[in-house]
Design a protein around this nucleic acid. Structure first.
Length: 690
DNA sequence: TGTAACTCCCCTCCG
DNA sequence: GGGAGTTACA
């Protein structure tokens, strides 16, 4: 097939708007893609189109929201290339040569190569959110802000404030006044704290998530370095543009000043990351920022049936500000979405499991069904029941196992060996030993710094008697790890740490055997990486999304149900979707309902959840919700056990709706409906039925 | 003076 | 389950 014919063949499956997006040449391009309108298809075709037209894959930069999304896109690019241009030599794994990944991951790669232009040491290590918090906390103590009164913001809040100023590119005052008014009185102290934080990160050669973007932005605003970077890429494509922030927009502006070769794709109706300082203004203002922008709007939905779309269109129609689009589907037939009134969480769980199994009986595999929820703990009750009934599931989102204490402990050893200046990792490792507390650990880290990071210097130090004989073993371990720097055998390093750490873990945590199994998993993951630095960077930037994603013993053909936070479900679709806990307080979450703007975001989040469904959609509405359970060990809450109106008592009451109609409680059918009416009304209010 | 053990309190979404 | 702060011991 000739190059031109191959290119033309690519367009065969696409509709008119999609073709416009795929074939666009030259100036900046904005593709506004409604939910399910073939956004990924269009993007994959566009990348393929570019490659088939002669663009060198390694000169394409593809920025996505998760690495999973990048991998999926590039897999499709490869498949398309294979299908349409099998004769073109060398194009088979072209997808692999494309620069693909998240802003943060690409930043890390670019900074390792080009950071020297800014005087940045290429050997930096990356700290995740909780390490950044720990460092801030440490500095807070050093500066003596504890003494400034007990009302000083918590470390998490401090980091939120810092991160927001960095990502919105706004002065501290503005951010405090608008987003953290209760912290205004600490403005000066916060400024001092942040200055110390910036300095300390530099001393320790660590970058936090925000730094990756900050330094990338700095790189593209430095004329010489910017020229180098611009010369690297012919085309830049950005997915999920509605969830980028001001800093990321500036990076793009620096990479493509006139917008040539720049494609952004997104849907303002699905902007759900403002808590991470993303701003929908990026996509709304794109045509103004880049003169000569071509806008392509995709409105034909290929995912959902028309009855589902009518409901989801109605939900989003109540949004205050958005690019109006009316999604339509050629798939006319299908059941309407269901709003399921459940008495409580138990009933919700039972309902979902029953429906899931029934669908599987009809031939809908578990993997084509998903349960979605606002907060990670909303699925706990369901998880317990699924486990009890041996129904396999994978859970995405929420606290990742990488963030659990024992995994963080293990990684801290490796990080300390990698970077002996890493104070947070060092203190963590040291304080694991009995007898060593904050003071001693701090002194030891100072000694280490004085010895230029040579762990052997610790051999002769003075220690409290309680430390006992474990100390020489620790020094040996760290010296050994540091020596093996050039040796790429990451799994054996993890193994060495695991051997040393296991007895400490057993002392410190319960459920030791389960935790030790997690550490074995880490050892298996480690085998995928060529060296320790890459391992640490990648696992920080892209932790396994699900514990079940780990390679342990992959039953590749086994089927499982997907459980996911709504945020983590972005961009995905399933035949049947069950939304849990769609009751006021959970959706919208009461913690995110403090302003009209936050309510709007909750509305978009709800919209994202609903638009994941292809054929069946169930929105569960439990009238009671106990936040509980998990911490009491038995999975059942105190509240549940002492329900004031258990079923046998309920039967002694006449059930009435507020309107006064009697409503018999049919066994197994209608729910005791005293609040049914109000539930409906609250649901309508949520959907904006004004 | 530093560490360990206790209390109380809170729990969102994520690179 | 874990963070933060306080108290009781070595």
């Amino acid at each position: 097939m000739s190059g031109t014919a191959a290119r033309e063949a690519l367009l065969a499956d696409l509709n008119l708007q999609q073709r416009q997006g795929v074939c666009h040449e030259g100036g900046p391009l904005l593709i506004v893609a409604g939910a399910g309108t073939g956004k990924t298809t269009t993007l994959a075709h566009r990348v393929t189109w570019l490659i088939a037209g002669g663009v060198d894959p390694s000169r394409i930069l593809l920025l996505t929201f998760t690495r999973r999304a990048a991998a999926e896109l590039l897999r499709r690019v490869d498949a398309l290339l294979q299908r349409t241009s099998a004769s073109q030599a060398g194009s088979r794994s072209a997808g692999r040569r494309v620069w693909g990944g998240t802003f943060h991951a690409v930043a890390a790669r670019l900074l390792r190569r080009h950071g020297a232009a800014l005087g940045l040491d290429g050997e930096f290590t990356i700290v995740d959110r909780s390490d950044a918090e720990d460092l801030l906390n440490l500095l807070r103590g050093e500066i003596g802000l504890h003494a400034a009164g007990k009302r000083f913001p918590l470390k998490g809040t401090c980091l939120d404030i810092y991160s927001r100023t960095v990502n919105t590119r706004e002065p501290l005052e503005t951010v405090l006044r608008r987003d953290f008014p209760w912290c205004i009185q600490h403005g000066e102290k916060l400024r001092e704290l942040f200055a110390a934080y910036v300095d300390r990160k530099e001393d320790q050669r660590v970058l936090d998530y925000d730094d990756l973007l900050v330094f990338w932005q700095a790189l593209v605003s430095e004329p010489a370095a910017a020229a180098t970077l611009r010369a690297k890429f012919d085309c830049v494509l950005v997915d999920e543009y509605q969830d980028t922030n001001a800093l990321q927009a500036e990076i793009l502006k620096g990479l493509c000043p006139d917008g040539r070769g720049l494609t952004v794709v997104g849907d303002d109706a699905q902007a759900i990351y403002s808590f991470r300082a993303a701003t929908v203004r990026n996509i709304l203002d794109f045509p103004r920022e880049f003169a000569g922008t071509t806008i392509v709007t995709l409105e034909q939905n290929y995912r959902s049936t028309q009855p589902l779309l009518e409901a989801t269109n109605a939900v989003i129609a109540h949004a205050d500000e958005w690019h109006r689009k009316e999604l339509w589907s050629a798939r006319q037939a299908g059941p309407r979405p269901a709003l399921v009134h459940c008495r409580d969480e138990d009933e919700q769980t039972a309902f979902v499991i029953e429906q899931v199994l029934a669908a599987r009986e009809r031939g809908v595999a578990l993997q084509r069904q998903a349960v979605l929820f606002r907060a990670s703990h909303h699925s706990l009750d369901l998880e317990v029941e699924l486990s009890r009934r041996n129904i396999p599931f994978h859970k995405y989102g929420g606290l990742k196992f990488i963030e659990t204490a024992h995994v963080k402990d293990l990684l801290a050893y490796l990080r300390l060996a990698e970077n002996p200046r890493d104070l947070v990792a060092g203190l963590r490792v040291l304080m694991l030993l009995p007898g060593i507390g904050a003071k001693t650990a701090r002194r030891l880290m100072d000694e280490l710094a004085a010895a230029a990071g040579r762990f052997a210097a610790w051999r002769s130090t003075r220690l409290p008697a309680a430390v006992g004989n474990r100390w020489p073993a620790l020094v040996d371990l760290l010296s050994g790890l540091a020596d093996r720097r050039t040796n790429g055998d990451v799994p054996s390093q993890v193994h060495a740490v695991r051997t040393f750490y296991a007895p400490l873990l057993e002392q410190k945590h319960d459920h030791a055997s389960a935790r030790l199994r997690d550490l074995e998993q880490i050892e298996l993951i480690a085998a995928r990486f060529p060296d320790r630095a890459r391992f640490l960077a990648e696992i920080t930037l892209d932790p396994p999304a699900s514990t079940q994603d780990l390679p342990a013993d992959p039953h590749l053909d086994e089927d499982w149900l997907v459980l996911s936070t709504i945020h983590s479900a972005k961009g995905l679709e399933w035949d049947s979707v069950y939304v849990l806990h769609a009751a006021d307080g959970n959706i919208p979450a009461d913690m995110a309902a403090r302003s009209p703007a936050e309510i709007e975001e909750e509305r978009r989040l709800f919209y994202v959840a609903l638009t994941r469904a292809r054929n069946r959609l169930f929105v569960c509405w439990p009238q009671r919700y106990y936040f509980t359970g998990r911490f009491r060990g038995d999975g059942h809450s105190y509240a549940k056990r002492t329900r004031f109106l258990p079923d046998d008592t309920l039967r002694l009451f006449d059930i009435m709706t507020p309107a006064g109609e009697e409503d018999a409680d049919e066994p197994g059918a209608a729910l005791p409906g005293a609040t049914t009416q109000s539930v409906r009304e609250r649901m309508k209010a949520l959907w904006g039925d004004r």
